[in-house]
Design a protein around this nucleic acid. Structure first.
Lengths: 250, 250
DNA sequence: CCGTTGAATTCCTATATATGAATGAATTAA
DNA sequence: TTAATTCATTCATATATAGGAATTCAACGG
């Protein structure tokens, strides 16, 4: 029938407003989201009925109401994990002046749950909700490092690692060796393995017995030059959270 | 098939997190939202795939990511109408110390687009996205006042006015007389017609040739006692917006 | 004022989806 | 440790929905 499910299309409509940042007509939504007009009409009217959208302007232009924002704000304010980790993340961002990321494994990907961007104009830039591979990101390696060798092998077989950049480690043995190095030094790294010229470090963090990865990422030239200082700050943050009883890392 | 469409159910799931303010299991979502487990499973996994939800805790508890909030924030920040009206609304709220509301007609209802609540502990309380009837709210009367008599009659025939409170005006002639009084004095009122013991005043505001209603609402005992002062503040706000070229009221 | 154009809306049916029932996984109790 | 229970997941099919086509509506230019 359709190329996407109707719930997905509903998300696509909302995301289109996020992208375009202006009121859109039914036709525009239909075109941009690749949804047939009649189907788009139905979806938009469902959202209108529930007050997630309203009609503005004479040309029947449509725009989201505050409803979505208020919902997101309430939900965000009640996220126990983010609440508990945010102060330490802010401190780490300020100490390193690089982008700080909280991530978690979701099946065969890492999802970014929180991104605090560096104050520098040249910085690692990402958004909460972005997903990245397991094998080519430092948070991913952090997660993989907690698995048994056989489990890592199985994961990599089910989801063969892509050569994302020239530096990406795709071989099983080389990856295991890299994980060993990470375990030994207490943090995991990527050197341009997912994005060229980006160096990132990550440590495991455990909240409520659930595993997360905390990372610092930035342009290689800056991060490599301060690797000692940054890794120290990252480990300090991990230690800090452990002291607060938040993290019993693994 | 189902009692609600799948996009509606997706909204119901997100709203459930807003209501419960905590991670929920699939079973809980399924129960609370009255969605069969298998269907709920599908919807939740769609949201997981798109990073709107993530799995937290060991019991497969689920919670929304920041994604929704960030989307809402971007969209809200780009709402031209709210941006232009908000300063005047804040000023009006501070001047009256009562709840200030921006509303718009959506078919046979008024949708609240923005609500700035009074600082008083006893206050008119509402949320953006709430919808109210046309005939028993002051913003509704404001909108009706701009229609021709015959159009008002048709609207009321298609959506017969309910007796919401003992004070609700349901008769056509009495309502038209009330609209006339409103036109004469420059603002429209309700006296416990939609909620007992609530008095509200509204004026029309036009942005980009599109009609909105701006209202002040509060407990009758406070508002009735300061009717003169409050109506003056409301008209001042309207005048103010007109000066800025925002409002060419009707 | 009317004709033209493009968008919004409605309608019908082929088709994707919802869900009851069965299975599998995991947690708790005994 | 095993049994019991509860929850998550899969699957086949009855059923609601997506979308092409037709229609209505509205804006704009002549």
């Amino acid at each position: 029938m359709s190329e996407a499910t109707s719930p997905e299309r509903m998300l696509a409509i909302l995301e289109m407003f996020e992208k375009e940042r202006r009121p859109l007509s039914l036709k525009e939504l239909s075109d941009y989201c690749r949804i047939p007009p009649s189907t788009c009409h139905n979806l938009v009217h469902t959202l209108l009925r529930h007050s997630y959208l309203y009609q503005t302007g004479q040309r029947k232009d449509i725009y989201p109401t505050r409803r979505l924002y208020d919902m997101g704000a309430t939900i965000l304010a009640n996220d126990q994990i983010l609440q508990r980790l945010l102060p330490a993340m802010e401190q780490l961002r300020d100490a390193t002046r690089e982008t700080v990321i909280l991530g978690k494994r979701q099946k065969d990907r890492i999802v970014y749950l929180e991104v605090l961007e560096s104050p520098e104009v040249i910085r690692y830039s990402a958004r909460a909700g972005d997903t990245k591979p397991l094998h080519s990101t430092c948070i991913g390696k952090t997660i993989l490092s907690t698995l048994k060798t056989e489990e890592v092998r199985r994961v990599l077989e089910e989801h063969p690692p892509l050569q994302v950049t020239p530096n990406t480690i795709t071989g099983f043995d080389r990856l295991m060796a890299d994980l060993d190095r990470g375990r030994a030094r207490g943090y995991f790294t990527t050197h341009g393995e997912n994005v060229a010229d980006v160096t990132a470090l990550a440590v495991p963090i455990s909240v409520n017995n659930e595993l997360f990865g905390l990372a610092v990422a930035g342009p290689s030239h800056r991060v490599d030059a301060s690797l000692e200082r940054i890794s120290r700050a990252l480990k300090d943050a991990q230690e800090n959270l452990l002291q607060q009883g938040i993290s019993g890392s693994g």
